[in-house]
Amino acid sequence: MSERTVAGTGNALLSRFHLGGSGPTVAIKDCIDIAGQPTCGGSAALADARPAAQHADVVRRLLADGWQITARANMHELAYGMTGINEWNGTPVNPQDAARMPGGSSSGSASAVGAGLVDVSIGSDTGGSIRLPAACCGVAGFKPTYGRVSRAGAWPQASTLDCVGPFARNMDLIISAMASIAPGFDLAAARAPQAGARVKLVQADADPAIAAAVQAAFDAAGWTGTPIGLADMQAAFEAGMVLINRETHTAFGHLLGRGSLGTDIEKRLAAAGATSDEAVARAEQVRGTFTAAVDAALADADALLMPTLPALPPTLAEIRNGASVLTLSALVRPFNLSGHPALSIPVPIAGSKLKAGLQLVGRKGDDETICALGLHLEQALRRAPA
């Protein structure tokens, strides 16, 4: 275990402390400012960062509402990866299966919640970085509508993709956290009954066991809906990659060549520097087209439903032997591009101890309905026969 993480936390937590009141406990991802502490982004390249002068807005709001902020969560270096592997701090343990990757970049946030180290954690999601580790670790994770939760004090400082949001083991805590961090969040709407919801099932290429788990959860919820194809998912995935590469290089390219970045991050960040203005312009065109397609699909539905991940997370050994993980974000990254709210909630897989992630995507600004749908689904699954 790395000496840079708290013993007994499976590399999920970088430090323990106490700020705030006596409410539920919260861990904060290492790319979100806490006054008096350095924000290191999981990277040796930022190990000498000066302590933050003030709290990030999300931290300030949690403290104002009496939450206990008790830990700093580990993460994939510079929030620029999906595996959660961190050779400097140590890789957080996946509480569902220690052999498998925890998912990134909010790996410590998902691991800490899944292991019961904290009640809630706050992460960030630029290309699936909340929903992907939530699905890997068997917890709920919510990416709000882009801009709904303030990013002031979150790094990188400028992003057209990134959202700050919560992880928890149940939807009630997700909803309570959103009520604190999202101004104007309507608690009553987020807990409104959703038995009659209209939910469209997006056709997705996923492993049969995961597709069956998602379908069974939909059936248990009792919702009405029809299967649909969602145009331009692949193009939106690729456009999201172009923009995250450009924006991450803009934020952190100055760290290249110093010998302090992990080998994989050094290589990826250097390659990102070659992202052309023409590629960015094309990606922005795809953003407009795909956003319109999602808006149209939601015009007569409360949500879109699909797997969070198309397959189970690979093992750490498989990744270190060269297994690619890029396509694991195929169903989550497009909604960073479009900015729609998206929730991953764990659902059981028949014959397996592991849970899969089911993703619900909603109308922009209607985060409350997505939370209410997640609460309804969670309650339905509790009532379903084992």
Rank of each mutant, 00 (worst) to 15 (best):
T25K: 00
V325D: 00
Q37M: 13
F17L: 14
A211F: 00
T327L: 04
Q203D: 04
A372V: 06
A301Y: 09
Q37R: 15
A152V: 14
I32K: 12
G8L: 05
A212G: 04
T289Y: 01
S107W: 13
G81Y: 03
N11Y: 05
G138F: 09
Q379K: 12
G288E: 09
S43N: 13
A303H: 06
R16L: 07
G322R: 10
T9Y: 05
L381N: 06
K364W: 09
T25P: 00
A47G: 11
P166G: 02
P51L: 13
C371K: 10
G257C: 07
R282V: 05
A274E: 15
A140Y: 04
G20L: 05
P144R: 11
K364S: 09
A47C: 05
D302H: 13
L161V: 09
R61M: 14
C40I: 15
Q359H: 07
S22P: 09
D207P: 00
Q157H: 10
M1H: 09
F142Y: 11
N11E: 14
I181H: 08
A221T: 04
L377K: 10
D264I: 15
R61V: 11
R148I: 03
H249E: 14
A380Q: 07
A236H: 12
K355W: 07
L78W: 12
E87S: 15
L243C: 10
W223T: 15
L173D: 03
G184Y: 02
R191I: 12
A112Y: 07
G147C: 11
S105T: 02
I28D: 05
P51E: 13
I175V: 15
P341S: 03
E87Q: 10
G104N: 06
V118H: 01
R268K: 12
A342T: 11
G374F: 06
T25R: 01
H76C: 10
D162C: 10
L201E: 06
T5W: 07
A52V: 07
